[in-house]
């Protein structure tokens, strides 16, 4: 409840957006090929992002090593918690997708990976904030009674 008092960890806002672009490509490849291993790769990235933090994923490493040095302009920072929340949502969808394809259900696989793809695309293209839209709704549903 007193999260606001803690000093938040700040990261470059462009990092999560770059990572979202790579996520779009990988998830689109997973959808197009229906290959379980491509989705597993993205699942592993989501897991690191969700539990350790989005700044520790391989995508973030690529951003820091190759992209950030080439970017001009001031780097604006943001609290790490919103993108970390988005990684958790992505992790959830990728788990459903992995289970579905292992069980042979292409339709559930397509829906689950489709939601993750849509969220990553909205983040990359529109700077969409998943935590803003979903966190409170999820909380309201969870505590309904």
């Amino acid at each position: 409840m007193t999260q606001a008092i803690k000093t938040p960890i700040l990261i470059d806002v462009r990092g999560p957006r770059f990572s979202a672009s790579l996520t779009v490509i990988v998830l689109a490849a997973a959808l197009a090929t229906q290959n379980v291993w491509i989705l597993f790769l993205q699942f592993a990235v989501f897991a690191i992002g969700a539990f350790k933090g989005p700044q520790f994923t391989p995508y973030a490493w690529i951003f820091k090593r190759f992209v950030k040095p080439r970017l001009k302009g001031e780097s604006i920072t943001e609290d790490v918690r919103p993108p970390q929340f988005a990684q958790k949502v992505g992790l959830g969808f990728s788990v459903v997708g992995l289970i579905a394809i292992s069980a042979g259900s292409i339709s559930i696989f397509t829906i689950a990976v489709g939601f993750a793809l849509a969220a990553a695309f909205l983040n990359a293209a529109f700077n969409y904030c998943l935590g803003c839209e979903m966190y409170l709704l999820a909380l309201r549903l969870r505590t309904k009674n």
Binding site: E78, C129, C132, Y135
Partner: peptide, 9 residues
């Protein structure tokens, strides 16, 4: 506001 929200800041 919520903690998982960048535009809140």
């Amino acid at each position: 506001s919520s903690a998982f929200c960048t535009p809140c800041r």
